[in-house]
Write a protein that binds this DNA or RNA. Structure first.
Lengths: 223, 223
DNA sequence: GCAAAAGTGTTAGCTGTACACCCATGA
DNA sequence: TCATGGGTGTACAGCTAACACTTTTGC
């Protein structure tokens, strides 16, 4: 049993919705290979930690962001994906509420939000990892309650709808969307509070409910 | 950059439908650790091969089975999942038609089909990997054409329906199922042939079509 | 003819879609 | 009172579920 030497890393596709765009958190690489290029945040798995633990640790270290949802995405292990050595990376997908990227008091040199439409030419095979992460997020919004992972503690139905519209790049009927999400038991918990804004009727505020699944699903396309 | 030494393996959840049961391919372990226990087939990734290539190679080596579908499932990397050393495994899910397990002219000592309901106490964390694989298969049958991956080249609608019933453990209405699958464009290609059996009207034979997705989905539960 | 399995027709009910309409606020 | 966005009512289309019914074979 000769076991070739592998390094194992975790990479993070951290998504949020801000300024009506789906954005991903990228860091500028300060070293070779791919120096100066953008990359997904990530790092080596430590000898004593689980993959999920490593992902959560990297997310905290490199970003300090409050996490709405974190799950394993997929693994990537092309023999030449890292020119230095054989590296297998276990990519994870994180969905977080819109929040300014912390003032890099951390590992990450110049971590920042970039619209996914403009995130091209990333280091390693991160273009593909990002594409897979975005597709996973889009698909999971259909049949799970994960849309709320993009929202803050208290939010309106319209804010949640904006999330879906931005992630899917498709307009949704506000009336039907409202009925759907408020009619799904356990999805949203009313706080009793309402917002005050300029113009328009105040909206009720909700919190995330206990429901994880969305049944029947909310489909993104029909035509 | 101190990179702790990792070994990387691929493990395979190979599922089939036989004798009206969902079965998984297991091998008896001939060495420590877990000598004598059942395990999922798998092995180390070679220095020059991709993860998907390694999975396909192991499947061919250890089983020699004709493959209907092969996809990455998830990775497992608990620090103590292998008592010998730190091992991260990239599990893959394979769906294959019902076929006798080849007369171990291969690596596998005593590879054999075991109903998933009786596959307990597997080596390593394979109980969990198997459970994840079965759940993935069940979920994917809802919205993809993967049910046909369990069928031979030519099959009847009833055989396909049996697949769904066995995987989901739920009876389906034969009439509605027939309409659904024959009405989905690109799912099935009629061969023009029919079966002859004892008793009952002969059934049309079909081949897998080009369609990958099933839209709208075929849901397994409503109550 | 009878049993068995394939395949078709039909209907009731649910859900998604589209859109008219009313409600509550700020200016 | 008007603009703006929140929220409700309602009609239609499409799909699913349930099941009566016809077709085609072997015995």
């Amino acid at each position: 049993m000769a076991h070739p030497p592998f390094a194992v890393t975790v990479d993070l596709v951290v998504l949020t919705v801000r300024a009506d765009e789906l954005c991903v958190l990228l860091v500028r690489r300060g070293e070779e290979p791919f120096r100066g290029r953008d990359a997904l945040p990530g790092g080596f798995v430590r000898p004593d930690e689980d993959l999920a633990t490593a992902a959560a640790r990297e997310l905290a270290e490199e970003t300090g962001l409050a996490v709405g949802h974190l799950e394993q995405l997929a693994s990537y292990g092309d023999p030449d994906r890292d020119p230095r050595q054989r590296v297998v990376t276990v990519a994870h997908l994180a969905l977080v509420p819109d929040q300014p990227v912390p003032t890099a008091g951390t590992d990450a040199a110049e971590a920042r939000w970039v619209p996914v439409t403009q995130a091209r030419g990333l280091a390693f095979d991160h273009d593909r990892v990002l594409a897979d992460g975005v597709e996973r997020a889009r698909a999971k919004l259909e049949y799970t309650a994960l849309g709320t992972a993009f929202c803050d503690g208290e939010f309106t139905v319209a804010q949640l709808r904006r999330v879906y519209e931005v992630v899917w790049g498709r307009a949704l009927d506000p009336r039907n969307f409202h009925r759907k999400v408020t009619g799904t038991p356990g999805l949203l918990e009313p706080t009793g509070e309402t917002t005050t804004r300029d113009g328009g009727r105040p909206a009720q505020l909700f919190r995330r409910g206990a429901a994880e699944q969305l049944h029947p699903p909310l489909l993104r396309a029909d035509t």
